[in-house]
Design a binder for these strands. Sequence first.
DNA 1: GCCGTTTTGTAGTGTGACTAGACAAAATGC
DNA 2: GCATTTTGTCTAGTCACACTACAAAACGGC
Lengths: 398, 398
Amino acid sequence: MPSKTTPMFEARASGQSSLSTVLGLIHGHRAITRSEICSITGLSRSTVAKLVTALVDLGFALETGSEQIDRVGRPSMGVEASKEVLAISVHPEVDYLEVKAVAFDGSIVRSEKLLYDEPIDTHQAVGDMVHVIENLVAELQASDTSYRILGIGVIVPGQINSSTGIVRQAPHLQWSEFPIRDLLTQRVPMPVFVANDASLGCKAEMAYGAAKGATDVVYMHGTSGIGGGVFMNGTELKGFRGYASELGHMRISSGNDIDYSGIPGTLEALVRRDDLEVVLGLKNVSDEELEEALLNNRTPASTALARKQLEALGIATANLANIFNPEVLVLAGFLRFLYRFDQNYFHRVVKKHAIPAVLEGMQVFVNELGANSAAIGASELVFQEVIADPTKYGTRAN
Amino acid sequence: MPSKTTPMFEARASGQSSLSTVLGLIHGHRAITRSEICSITGLSRSTVAKLVTALVDLGFALETGSEQIDRVGRPSMGVEASKEVLAISVHPEVDYLEVKAVAFDGSIVRSEKLLYDEPIDTHQAVGDMVHVIENLVAELQASDTSYRILGIGVIVPGQINSSTGIVRQAPHLQWSEFPIRDLLTQRVPMPVFVANDASLGCKAEMAYGAAKGATDVVYMHGTSGIGGGVFMNGTELKGFRGYASELGHMRISSGNDIDYSGIPGTLEALVRRDDLEVVLGLKNVSDEELEEALLNNRTPASTALARKQLEALGIATANLANIFNPEVLVLAGFLRFLYRFDQNYFHRVVKKHAIPAVLEGMQVFVNELGANSAAIGASELVFQEVIADPTKYGTRAN
DNA sequence: GCCGTTTTGTAGTGTGACTAGACAAAATGC
DNA sequence: GCATTTTGTCTAGTCACACTACAAAACGGC
């Protein structure tokens, strides 16, 4: 007699199966022991044994011999995330297109980069993406390891509706109303996910970087503009249509300078990477060069500008602290070295504008993952889908 | 042989039992049919039958005869939230203390109010609370109906840490570092919960008021200061220590006027109820009187002030729209009629400062629940605890 | 008023996801 | 070498469901 035990109603994300939970733990820890899984989840040893072998069968995990030492008792068996399960990240930017293959254990397996002299249109962008992806896939399939590629995560520097996969506005790429997910899905035989670059950076820093272990995180990423990502209680702040966490467009001053979206007095209008380049006599330099110049060639003019920008960043941070009461604030991109230029001044400004209670225990960090952060976040889009339904994406379909 | 099936690990709020889910539905709808429960939850009829009878046994629900008409098929049995299950709300304010008994179906059963001529200290406040609660409880127990009082929800106009139950700072009451929950727990034989007034107002409006059915809500409440409440994806924004959603202290201007927490240029510093009273030649009037005066006695001076305030409110709203991309924005307290003074102007300001995408589909409402809103929210604190573990709070303990 | 249709309540049976308990296995420490 | 500790494995039991009948209660057409 048939039976399909579907306990919680499927519409809600709440009813997570234990298989998902355990796979999530393996993925998050890269390597973990069975007994650790027991104590974290509260599941019994027998259940954990069953779940782990199921995940090994599905090709997501490997059981390693016991590696632990110096502890009484029978050593617990190790479980590792498979290095053969992959997601592909696709990152289009103004002057390049970068495609990486990220393994289920977070390592970068392959990386491909296409440089552009001039901005490309949406049509060419899709063509190039498909081309690079196909190359990468062919390369991976030709290798000795038997990789399984489960999906594609696209990193977009702009506002995107993650449920429809449409890029609403990407000011720097000059894209708008661009249904990138559907166009890619038509030409690549894999599920495609699309998200904002800052939100992915935040996700990655929470998984493996500066905000590891934190659940309430605010992330600000300075490139040309300022992007934001927010996770509260471990889940991403998406809002009604998925456009939430546009932190750069927060108006904090009465001034009339406008930002890239035409709004006056915002954080993005006041804290500009271009202005830092100009005051240092530079143009189109890398983050590394700009950091070097800013921190080591201090002039009265550069100090005044950096202070002015730090004040704006501090006010914005205080606002965000009052609004979110975060555990960790992560500063990435050029905000990283703007912060380092004068941390103390920044903290003084924050302190002046925030309610004392919300600053208690709040930590400010700069990003740790650097160049791979967005790619890891994009892989996470795919892997979180896989983790939510392991049987669907596993090898031996039951 | 004993067995205790605890499927998901208990640390997470995720693993909600079906009993909780169904009780939550009954509570949220006040009245619902079994078949509606089936279609909403996806549970089978047999399971729903079992769960409903269990909840009736526990004293949380009543089965009513089928009331539906004009539909083919056997009519489904109705289920109603019990009117005998109560929570008590306690609301201390500068010039009064209000205690209400709220039933599980959201109705107000009893209400008691103590007026003060001058602000009282924390010691007297606790004494008065205990006294009024005891009176109310005695009154209820003496009545014909056999009420069951399950807990107390305290509404505090200030920053409180909901996990420790300590009032960190309540500027208007001039309380600080006041462990109100523990002091009440010692003297009242019931679980006590404490939360911020605006967050409770938001909760109530989402359950029964202007934001009913919405999951992503931003709420702003103007009394003397401006309090905020935020729910994203149906859950409250609490932040790391529970101090999140202090929306009034968001700095939006370069000005130097300070708010009640001493921060310059904030929403609360720019949008002040006192200023409205002054420009209208009033003092210490009720919201109703102020509304009447503002909307019907328009002078050049009052119009100029209201516009200035509306501009600040509009900028703050745009910031919050960019940050949260809410589905519904609720304006309560004096913001309600400030908004009504010139809605169009407000919306123009918002439009100018927000990214177009985040305003799509965003609705602005004024609060609907009025005077009972906070009390209903406070009862919700208790009831949500009850819903999370019905067997613990039910009558016939199994 | 009878009868087919539709929808719901009820009862019995089965199953999958767990737990608990017993025992074996693998480490440490004296 | 033996007691102690911790873990893996196996078996039996439990609970929250789903599924399948079948009965009950409404409607509509004749």
